[in-house]
Design a protein around this nucleic acid. Sequence first.
DNA 1: CGATTGTGGTTACAGTTGTTCACTGACTGA
DNA 2: TCAGTCAGTGAACAACTGTAACCACAATCG
Lengths: 208, 208
Amino acid sequence: MSHTLGIRQAQKQKTRQAFLDAALGLLEEQSLSSLGLREVTRAVGVAPTAFYRHFRSTADLGVALVEEALGSLHPMIGTTVSPAGDSDQRIGRAVDLIARHVDAYPAHVRFIARERHGGVQSVREAIGAQLARFAEEVKAELAKHPESAGWSDDDLLMLAGLYVDQMLMTASLFLGALDAPEEERARVADVAARRMRLISIGRHHWLG
Amino acid sequence: MSHTLGIRQAQKQKTRQAFLDAALGLLEEQSLSSLGLREVTRAVGVAPTAFYRHFRSTADLGVALVEEALGSLHPMIGTTVSPAGDSDQRIGRAVDLIARHVDAYPAHVRFIARERHGGVQSVREAIGAQLARFAEEVKAELAKHPESAGWSDDDLLMLAGLYVDQMLMTASLFLGALDAPEEERARVADVAARRMRLISIGRHHWLG
DNA sequence: CGATTGTGGTTACAGTTGTTCACTGACTGA
DNA sequence: TCAGTCAGTGAACAACTGTAACCACAATCG
């Protein structure tokens, strides 16, 4: 499947990636619907018309960014929601993983949080589709847990969606405390863990 | 406190409200950071320069919109989170109330959901401050419940925040199903109610 | 090798943007 | 009544926008 790309294709991918990187940087302080085509090309250092060789519009670029930000995240679901360890251990692991991810890719996280309800329909839909996939994957993982015996598919999906939304909320909170003192960041982590613990308790007493 | 305004002040308020209404309409299909000053004045039907008589910038207008969308909502907290009725009744009441509010003020809800993580800092902060107030009020209401005996202040605030975020998520889901068939809307209401029930169950088993 | 493909550059266009300035004329308060 | 206040106007500014046409030239393919 992966034969080495020609020099030409490789260079094109490189330029395309430069577009994505530059856009992500610019989007830290504005929304996609106000991102100008010229603004991006200026940041990349190419002519305005070069943009069209890679994207139809800035909305198109946004969809590509969704793919970049969320597409590579699916494999992490399995290990994060795995049944290993007791409940509190799993929660601590998940919160820690989210914190690390926000630290490593703050611009990606900010972009998703911002554009999830943002002004560009196609991007909203792309994010919605990815999050729905996440929920399905979390559901599939939850179904493996022994605690899920007796749960209906609908209830499992409900719980999975709650978890996914909670992850996003937590990520957004970490984002807000990115350059806050460590004390504040620890407080955020603590609140997030307590929220998840409460949901986890609700889960254990859901039946009966 | 409220003596009748002069003709002049009254007319000014009217124009100001026209700005807010027009902006809210325009913001259904874009984000605040891309809303142009001229765009708004054009929709209102006044000269561009008239804008400055009312707002310093579009960000300023956004903050005013936050006030309009959330400021009048505080009195509803008390009755919604009141201890009257059993748990399922309260949940049903809350979900129904959210659904009605989204139906009545869809543009306001969309604006809040969109700009909560949007590209304009001052607006984000204004929304954050209002939501923090909501959380405090929900916490104060929860403290009255007998179920809250033995809860620490910190845990109560955590739960209140979870409820507030859940309300927003629910509102956003209703927003997405605004012009969907009744069947879909009912499904959304059902999922929202089950989410809140799970949280409620977690709440009852939090201690011990 | 020669012919073709296609990324990126250049120039140009018509509209739009935020902001300034000087202005009008209806309302206001003494 | 009369001077003053001030919401809204109109014209002008420089800077910006998306997009179209045409060009250059290096990588590719037959």
